[in-house]
Design a protein around this nucleic acid. Sequence first.
DNA 1: CCAATAGTCAGACAGGTTGCCTAATCGATA
DNA 2: TATCGATTAGGCAACCTGTCTGACTATTGG
Lengths: 397, 397
Amino acid sequence: MGLMSTSVERLSGSAKLLRAMNTSAVLAHLLSRGPLTRSDIRELTGLSKPTTSEVLRTLVSADLAIVTGHTSGGPGPNAEIYATNPDGAYAAALSVRETGRQPEVALAVTDLSGATRARHERVVGLDVAEPADALVKALHSVCRDAGLAPDRIRHTHLGVPGSYDPTTDAIHHVDVPGLGRAGLVSRLRRRLGATVEVDNDVNLAAIAERRHGVARGADAFALLWIDYGLGLAIDLGGTLLRGSRGGAGEIGYMPLGLPGARTLLRDAPDLHSVLAGPAVVALAAQHGVRATDPAAAVKAGGAAFLAALAQRVAIAAATVVAVLDPSLIVLAGTVGRAGGDRLRDATTVALRASGPLEATIATTGVTDDPVLLGAIDAGLERVREDLIRSVQHNHRQ
Amino acid sequence: MGLMSTSVERLSGSAKLLRAMNTSAVLAHLLSRGPLTRSDIRELTGLSKPTTSEVLRTLVSADLAIVTGHTSGGPGPNAEIYATNPDGAYAAALSVRETGRQPEVALAVTDLSGATRARHERVVGLDVAEPADALVKALHSVCRDAGLAPDRIRHTHLGVPGSYDPTTDAIHHVDVPGLGRAGLVSRLRRRLGATVEVDNDVNLAAIAERRHGVARGADAFALLWIDYGLGLAIDLGGTLLRGSRGGAGEIGYMPLGLPGARTLLRDAPDLHSVLAGPAVVALAAQHGVRATDPAAAVKAGGAAFLAALAQRVAIAAATVVAVLDPSLIVLAGTVGRAGGDRLRDATTVALRASGPLEATIATTGVTDDPVLLGAIDAGLERVREDLIRSVQHNHRQ
DNA sequence: CCAATAGTCAGACAGGTTGCCTAATCGATA
DNA sequence: TATCGATTAGGCAACCTGTCTGACTATTGG
């Protein structure tokens, strides 16, 4: 509504455009639906036999598609099975974790089919003259493991505990020393000679949750990340909401109550002070649980502690529901994951008690590193979109 | 990201599709850019002269476009100026207001050019056997005034103080007696023989704000509606966020502080109890302002009262910013409008004091009935989209 | 009268479709 | 076991649709 410039309605052109559209449509289907025969493609696109053949010839000669096999069993000749060429493009994923000590970096290289070719996890010192170079070095090392020349990486997706502002070319709200350096991303781009995209770690976790976790098939959901810090990712039917300055989901700053009100904790003006890692540890201590790690505290805590924690989670959940009305709220981060079914159930109860707002609460279903998985998915998606677009542009005019 | 099914990439077809696309592209340009000559269209679409002529012939013969005039002054023959036919389609807008007494209904009929043909405002009793019939009767009366047969209305857009859930075919969270009746909307559709869409009144006000108010050209903004009730509309680049059950923006239910916390007001568990109409009147009374109408109270109130009110508005604003990070927050509703620049400035100060969250606060720039204006815009938009789509489908296959 | 522009017309072109053909494969039947 | 028919894969040629280019006419202002 409002904006009418959805490109579909405005597209205009001649026969060349048609060829471009058909080629990219076939590529898109091959990318999303896996290996397909000619007749599969014909059914999906509605194109005729000669056109389908012609388009596939184009894709094969552009090294974007290959014949992976033949059907058998049915009557008639065996149909060729086409798939995208796994070696048609590669993407790298890079997740920088904030651990208190040296930053940990997880890296992976995947091919166009989504198969992980190599994966590393290592400590990388970023508090150096050129933090970008340290990341590039780590990336080169993974490429060596994958048996790939670094310049074959078409796109790198970087996950960071902060938000990237493209206008200032700096990563904000980040505690990792060196990572907030202005110009880091553009230096990365120059050094790698490829596109680099930066995303918030919680947003990436939400992407992984939609792809591999409990949010599969959800229309819209919010992911509440509880760890040392707090975060919220908002997924609207597969599109992440990032906000005007990339600051959407910074719910740690959410105010609690009117100024001057006496809240349960003294000096608890915002959600961060009652729900982030330190607050969880402090709450656990109040209930006689001694632990320095918030996730360990949650695992060790009893029912009373969990109920108290759930009340705080419910505050966050209720606010999100009041503003966005997602159908699902996923609890994630080390605390969310450690809470498991117990925290989920307690939060559901607390949310119901707090008012008429309704939403399903779930615990994250991603067991592997969610940020790295999300970075892989997002990077792969970006590469695929680029390929589809490039096919369209090659044939235009 | 995630969902790849953006239709652009998947469109496929033959020459017929091209014609359909080009025709609808020209129609879209005529609808959004106003009257155009052939050469204007040629520049906008990149089509050749013969094709442009052919497409325009099609549109004219379908009664969707007309020649409105001729250029003059330059050398050469005078070019024909084309525009959409104002009488190509009509839309009706209908806003039901909650006034405490009988519900007030505002109605308007507009043509395809956006010109209002007739407009009414009347009290309609909806607490009857068939509330839909009462609305239809009112609509027929406006049509008579506009000199139009009711069956020429292609679409009716209904604005209500509540949220419509299509799965149950009922309007929820609504205080107007009769309007919450299940099946009202589908009966309206049957009686009118046209499409009917229902939208929340605050959402419609946001549409009007983007079109005619201070949110013109904003990338994303939130509209905070303060009146007898509270509401929030979330506009993301022209698309409204409605939530999974249409409940997005029900911030009246937003919890304030942890349960058990002693807030400024006793029994103030949610935002409604501190910021909706009655709370505004009560706060005014605390500051020695006697008024029963919240807007009047705000107008009469002094600086101290306004500062106190602004602190509460800032809580809502800060929460919205923490979750969504809009670049702009518009204060609307009778209270927001009555607050004017004073409330805007006080809220800006209070928001800045409350934390590191930043956003521009503005007062609504819509002076006319924002809900009706929004319903007109939304209805018109819907009709235009339908026309564009119908042109595409007529030519397909 | 000349320059510039509006609009049409005819032929070329690009791409897609239909219908027909051949080849391959499986299952049924003699 | 050998053969035949049904079914399907894929290619080829002719046709169709829609757009583009370039030339042409008509119209207006200087």
